[in-house]
């Protein structure tokens, strides 16, 4: 009795057509289609592709949730044991689709999934933390390598066997940090690493220096006297009592506070919730972190059009970049919806 595998592919690999057929709606076929014919033998009889789910890349992009739901339903109905998507190489929409269906199926059906993408495929950044991805070359010429790699990994997942060294070398890093206890304490490890580094011997760093993304600068505000300006802070300024319980460290939320009638942040009306700096000064005068008093003066003098009536705040102490990103996106959208032209962000 071999494992039942579902294969997800796009219109191109199904042989239906190219860009002109990218809008085709999902089609389910029994058995193998396109690259499934290479994948199936690689599964060694231990697993078999029994159905292929075909979807146009554009259709998928416009109906992500619906198509994922269809795939999930098919997995349940056809009692599928594992999902293979792609390989999508460097095809952006296809790679994103493969990542999305794998993530949905992994979450909803809790079965092994695998896809193969070229490192620069946008699907990688979106899904690498959620699903296993085999690293592939940038075009279908890499099919010969991607197929056996995917097959080997999915079989091990199905049989609940440990991945071997060559499996690990084919898989992309999730980029997730997992705690572990080493045999020696950190000091011993540091001195040992230094000795190696001084000798010019190979050593492995325990943590690779981080890389941060960049965004395009926005064009300048043309007429400040007509602009609505908002203020946002990571310095943790909140109404006294910290009503939204923003944590002193590792904040999981941000606050939104109306201050339309506030001319000046006063001691005991506003406090700081931030646990990473000496709170004395911010508690004495919260304007030192969120400069409401001078902005009100500037507003009165007509130098800005208006100070937006809400400020946004979180605690930047030990707060994960992913959280900050999520908060930023939400706050940004709210400010956009409120027709704010520019934001002053303060941090501590």
């Amino acid at each position: 009795m071999s494992y039942r595998v579902l294969h997800y592919i796009n219109q191109f690999f199904a042989g239906i057509g190219g860009e002109e057929k990218a809008d085709i709606s999902p089609e389910i076929r029994d058995g193998l289609v396109g690259p499934g014919q290479a994948l199936n033998p690689a599964l060694n009889g231990e697993a078999e592709i029994i159905k292929t789910f075909i979807c146009g890349d554009n259709y998928f992009a416009n109906n992500i949730d619906a198509v994922c739901a269809q795939v999930v339903a098919l997995v349940k109905e056809a009692k599928i044991d594992a999902l293979i998507a792609g390989p999508a190489f460097n095809a952006g929409r296809y790679g994103t689709a493969c990542g999305a269906v794998c993530a949905a199926v992994a979450k909803e059906c809790n079965i092994p999934v695998i896809t193969a993408l070229y490192p620069e495929n946008p699907g990688v950044d979106l899904y690498r933390k959620l699903i296993p991805i085999v690293e592939s070359s940038d075009s279908a010429r890499g099919m010969g390598k991607a197929v056996p790699a995917m097959a080997s990994v999915i079989l091990k997942f199905l049989k609940k066997e440990e991945l071997c060294k060559s499996d690990h070398s084919c898989l992309m890093e999730k980029g997730i940090r997992i705690n572990m206890f080493y045999d020696e304490n950190g000091a011993e490890r540091a001195v040992a690493m230094l000795v190696k580094k001084l000798k010019g011997e190979e050593f492995t760093t325990e943590y690779k220096m981080p890389v941060f993304d960049r965004v395009e600068p926005r064009p300048a505000v043309k007429d400040m006297s007509k602009a609505t300006i908002a203020i946002v802070t990571s310095g943790g300024i909140v109404p006294k009592g910290n009503p939204d319980h923003i944590a002193a460290s590792s904040a999981q939320n941000y606050g939104e506070y109306d201050f339309a009638n506030v001319k000046d942040l006063l001691q005991n009306e506003y406090i700081t919730a931030h646990g990473g700096y000496d709170q004395t000064y911010a508690n004495e005068d919260p304007d030192r972190v969120l400069p409401v008093d001078v902005l009100r003066d500037i507003e009165k003098e007509g130098k800005i059009g208006k100070l937006h009536n809400k400020f946004y705040t979180t605690v930047g102490n030990g707060t994960a970049v992913a959280n900050a990103l999520a908060f930023g996106k939400e706050i940004g959208q709210k400010l956009r919806d409120a027709n704010v032209q520019a934001v002053i962000l303060t941090s501590t």
């Binding site: 941060f212 965004v215 600068p217 000496d278 709170q279 000064y281 972190v289 962000l345 501590t348």
Partner: peptide
């Protein structure tokens, strides 16, 4: 490092916009 595009240097961590 984290990618801000317009940066104004301020006074001190506990009082960026102040000086007791």
């Amino acid at each position: 490092s984290v990618g801000a595009n317009r940066i104004i240097p301020t006074v001190s961590i506990p009082y960026p916009l102040g000086n007791p």
